[in-house]
């Protein structure tokens, strides 16, 4: 799918170039952007996927793309040594944590965006909003939990510690590859594209993106969660039939 779009891309961009002069006459549309696909489909052979974001700006500037996954409640544990064994001894619950976070930018963030812009638009992991139960921890302890959460999510491949690239083709067309790992969290994502000049946001666009299991994968998952008892019985039946079949084959040979 992605490869197909890759071959189609030059055509798409050319089309944009044709459309652009018309668009740029409208002063309220300095930025146009879209994704190569609006659904990341987790199928049987899913091993990660790449989505292409492409678009155009009306004047030379910088582009920052912030991708966030659906917000979830997340619990963290801290280990300490008890009788020689490392076990979880403390825990902290974050109420709404983006399950996925990645930033792509056309240059180093601290050079293309003002600090207040970076903070407001959550550009970069250090500006990511991770609300903690305020009463629970003193600021430096809360900071430790927050950093730990970011580290843990980065280890899972769900947070990208490094800022990805936004490449300009000429002065107005740009593209960015957004990579999703095989264990990508499912749900509805938001892709925020910011168009910056002199460190300030002059245009922004939000594009929705769905990440979901489709086909057999979705059916099995729904089956397991929505009709759990039947699912359990089916699993047992499969095991019984397989064991019995093995037994009868074994007797014959």
């Amino acid at each position: 799918m992605t490869r197909l779009l890759r071959t189609v891309l030059p055509g798409l961009l050319a089309l944009l170039l044709v459309v652009l002069p018309v668009r740029s006459t409208q002063p309220n549309e300095p930025l146009v952007a879209d994704l190569s696909e609006h659904l990341v489909a987790i199928t049987m052979g899913f091993a990660g996927s790449e989505v292409l974001l492409f678009g155009a700006v009306d004047m030379p500037g910088d582009v920052v793309v912030v991708v966030q996954g659906p917000k979830r409640e997340v619990r963290m544990h801290r280990k300490s040594r008890v009788l020689g064994i490392w076990m979880n001894t403390a825990s902290m619950t974050f109420a709404a944590v983006p399950s996925y976070y990645a930033v792509n930018a056309s240059g180093p963030l601290d050079q293309i965006a003002l600090p207040q812009v970076r903070a407001r638009q959550q550009m970069g992991l250090e500006h990511l909003e991770l609300p903690l139960p305020r009463a629970k921890a003193s600021p430096n302890v809360a900071e430790a939990w927050r950093d730990a959460l970011i580290r843990a999510k980065a280890r899972e491949g769900h947070y990208h510690a490094e800022v990805g690239k936004v490449r300009f083709l000429g002065q107005r067309l740009f593209r960015a590859d957004i990579r999703f790992p095989a264990n990508v969290p499912t749900g509805s994502y938001t892709v925020e594209t910011y168009y910056l000049r002199d460190g300030r946001v002059v245009g922004a666009q939000t594009t929705p993106l769905m990440v979901g299991k489709v086909g057999v994968e979705a059916e099995i998952h729904d089956f397991a969660y929505n009709r759990a008892s039947l699912y359990g019985l089916v699993a047992i039946t499969i095991a019984l039939v397989a064991g019995w079949a093995a037994h009868s084959v074994f007797r014959k040979t």
């Binding site: 490392w86 730990a148 843990a152």
Partner: peptide, 16 residues
């Protein structure tokens, strides 16, 4: 794995 010092003392809990 249980007795060696873990790479990170903080780990993610199961998704609720």
């Amino acid at each position: 794995d249980l007795v060696s010092v873990p790479a990170d003392l903080y780990v993610l809990g199961p998704t609720p």
